[in-house]
Design a protein around this nucleic acid. Structure first.
Lengths: 223, 223
DNA sequence: GTTAGGATTTAGCTATGCCTAAATTAGTTA
DNA sequence: TAACTAATTTAGGCATAGCTAAATCCTAAC
């Protein structure tokens, strides 16, 4: 009943819905999923019609996840992050290689696989990118962070996580030392949107372009 | 271009074709794959028409794999057996739990995943059921064995592998001690097809039903 | 050599999930 | 309030991979 494609819709609705599960538009979904809007409408209509009700959909008013839909979506996020950590720590994948493989496999691993992987990793809390790994039976959301792009100047920040969507960006972030746990201060915001950032209170100031800055989530608590 | 479904057809053709890649019939494929014969005909026609030619198909005369088709099929077998060993040895799955998970995942793991798993397992030669794990760039076939059901009476045999298709049978085989490496002699062949088998030259004679005996492959060389 | 019967293929249908083009709706903007 | 525009939905197609029912082929037995 739940295809790979449905999985992708559920994950996208979860991620686009933000901390408060706001309604997600057809357009936003189409863009995120790389399909055309009529395909989204069609899929939402089908999802909203079928038995284990996963989404609430009203035409022209967007879509939200039901409790069941949210459960499946968080399950996928858990699978993804556990797989990333497993690929990195056990199979020795590099930081930027884990995303694609995890994205493919997250749909197909069983409960047992998930449990055993979690066990051999010591029931970890964070994936290699710093994202919290949600636990079963709670939503485990971490959304009280900001992107580096919008962090105030001169306020100390700790990188809590980075987006895992793009291998080239990840390599660049790693090269710059912008990895989870790193402490930094934003010294200056250029007109282009690029940032001048001082790492670990040291003397060096590095330039972080706008696109990259949006991939870095910061807080001010060490983990 | 290669769907999960195509994968299943290729594997089935490989397995049903035997040691000499004999032509496989539409009927045999339909039965093995659990689909109706017209579905098989349709798929074979499509496969035989498309660009990376995977099968040779003549209507009413069955189907065979091309070199490319064989390469993909053996790759799947390698994936399957590596995954089984990995699930058993690393994730601590029991003997009878590995098949289904491996069957699902074998389609989706990457070259890199395959290589890394093989590496952490020490580039193993056999899976937990005793089947040889084929290596890249060679066909690595092991087909000089016989089923226990057809082994001569009183001739010493070593179990080389067991079929991994059925969890209940696997548990029964394990309970009886019929696992890869076990030495035995067939004492008697009942009219029902059941066997009376003496394990390790000991005094105990166990009864092995016909169905089970067909799942056990034996040779007379210790591995 | 004919023919019966099983094996196989053809014909035509279903569902999924995507597409383009055209219609419609909703929400601003004059 | 009327109209414009952008977002969204409807309508109609395509490919995949399955299905049933009906036609056809091949072979083996007479």
């Amino acid at each position: 009943m739940i295809s790979e494609s449905v999985d992708d819709y559920l994950k996208a609705i979860l991620e686009l819905g933000g901390a408060h599960d706001e309604r997600v538009t057809t357009n936003a979904l189409a863009e995120r999923l790389g399909v055309r809007t009529p395909s989204v409408t069609g899929m939402l209509q089908k999802l909203a019609a079928q038995k284990p009700l996963l989404v609430l959909y009203e035409k022209h008013r967007g879509v939200q996840l039901t409790a069941a839909g949210k459960r499946r979506a968080w399950e996928l996020v858990r699978h993804h992050r556990l797989l990333e950590l497993f690929l990195h720590d056990v199979l020795k994948y590099s930081w930027d290689e884990v995303h694609d493989e995890a994205e493919r496999l997250e749909h197909f691993i069983s409960e047992r696989f998930e449990d055993r992987v979690s066990a051999i990793l010591g029931d970890p809390e964070f994936d290699p990118h710093g994202h919290a790994i949600p636990r079963k039976d709670q939503s485990g959301v971490f959304r009280d962070e900001a992107t580096l792009a919008e962090w105030p100047l001169h306020k100390p920040a700790i990188i809590s996580s980075v987006s895992d969507r793009n291998a080239a960006s990840l390599r660049e972030l790693e090269r710059l030392g912008l990895m989870p746990g790193a402490a930094l201060i934003v010294e200056q915001r250029k007109s282009s949107g690029a940032l001048a950032v001082r790492l670990d209170g040291g003397p060096e100031v590095i330039r972080v372009n706008k696109d990259l800055a949006f991939r870095v989530l910061v807080g001010n608590r060490q983990r």
